[in-house]
Design a protein around this nucleic acid. Structure first.
Length: 305
DNA sequence: ATCCTATCCTGTAGGC
DNA sequence: TGCCTACAGGATAGGA
């Protein structure tokens, strides 16, 4: 799943390749993504120049001159791809092809169609419903222990679910939530409102470290995520718990466990992340108490991200 | 208000 | 080999 580091990687690459280019024409697949792409998007983009590439949480904001912005989200399987030369055989699921004058093209590809391509007037972005409720972006404004403590006051959800809530913090997804909690030594089942201040300080520090390292490695690729150059990110080898059920913890050797929280996998080390940092919330796997039923059957190459 | 589940969607692994 | 089923999880609408 593309999370903040993957989106940031794409943003930086867009910045180096697409800024300054003027759109000659656009072709849409016409298929519905998370929402329908406006059919007048090609007409409205034509002749405009890309001027800024921004990111808020997992959202990408591509500003064009004349006050128009493409608000984009990669969802589960979305990719922005830049082709200096267009490949002879066209891959499936390309929903937008943006052509530039020199023959290069920028594509939005998304097999699962959870992604988003929305045209917004730049000055109205702040009021856009997808952005209006987002919490702080932890790369733009690094988290602090005190800040997290305040955000979590009264929250009864687990700290794992808390980190995934984009209204509280924007950009953390399922992979990095597990990684952050492992490095912070915090049981993912702990109730967010019961986490001690010292522990929040560790979460803040580790969030910065985990996201920063992932950005340095161009993101984590299991299978779907690719950079703008259609290359996988190399952060997978840097992950300590995610998708490592049964493997020995790199810190203490204990077998990594997988549990289900809010219908999502969580991976943690029961020894490095001991219970008892606070009371646990009443979260249970959706399909009953047997978490084995939801166990992924694949290895590290299972379709993801 | 807050929490929680179902829903959208396709590729892929694994079972038979 | 090939068909079938379940699962992966981004955001969000709507129910408890």
């Amino acid at each position: 799943m593309p999370e903040l580091p993957e989106v940031e990687t794409v943003r930086r690459m867009l910045e180096s390749s697409v800024l300054g280019r003027t759109v000659r024409s656009v072709r849409l697949s016409g298929l519905k993504l998370r929402e329908r792409v406006r059919p007048d998007l090609p007409r409205r983009l034509a002749g405009r120049r890309f001027v800024t590439a921004r990111r808020i949480g997992k959202y990408l904001l591509l500003d064009l001159d004349g006050g128009l912005t493409i608000l984009s989200h990669l969802g589960m399987s979305g990719r922005w791809l830049f082709h200096a030369q267009v490949p002879r055989r066209s891959p499936p699921h390309v929903h937008a092809r943006i052509r530039f004058a020199d023959g290069s093209q920028l594509w939005f590809q998304d097999p699962r169609r959870f992604g988003l391509l929305r045209l917004v007037e730049t000055e109205r972005l702040a009021a856009d419903p997808s952005l209006a409720l987002l919490g702080p972006d932890p790369v733009a404004e690094p988290l602090t222990g005190d800040g997290l403590l305040a955000l979590a006051t009264g929250a009864r959800v687990s700290v794992k679910t808390f980190l995934l809530d984009q209204r509280r913090i924007a950009g953390i997804g399922n992979i990095y939530a597990s990684e952050i909690l492992h490095r912070a030594g915090l049981d993912p089942r702990t109730r967010a409102g019961a986490v001690r201040p010292e522990r929040w300080a560790m979460v803040a520090r580790e969030t910065t470290a985990v996201l920063g390292e992932a950005i340095d490695r161009f993101g984590t690729t299991f299978s779907a995520y690719r950079t703008l150059w259609n290359e996988p990110g190399s952060n997978g080898e840097n992950l300590r718990v995610y998708d490592r059920r049964g493997e020995p913890c790199q810190t203490c050797g204990t077998a990594i466990r997988r549990i289900v929280q809010g219908a999502r996998s969580t991976f943690f080390c029961p020894r490095c992340q001991p219970a008892g940092q606070g009371r646990r919330p009443s979260e249970r796997p959706v399909s009953g108490p047997s978490s084995r039923r939801n166990a992924p059957r694949g290895g590290r190459n299972r379709a993801r991200t």
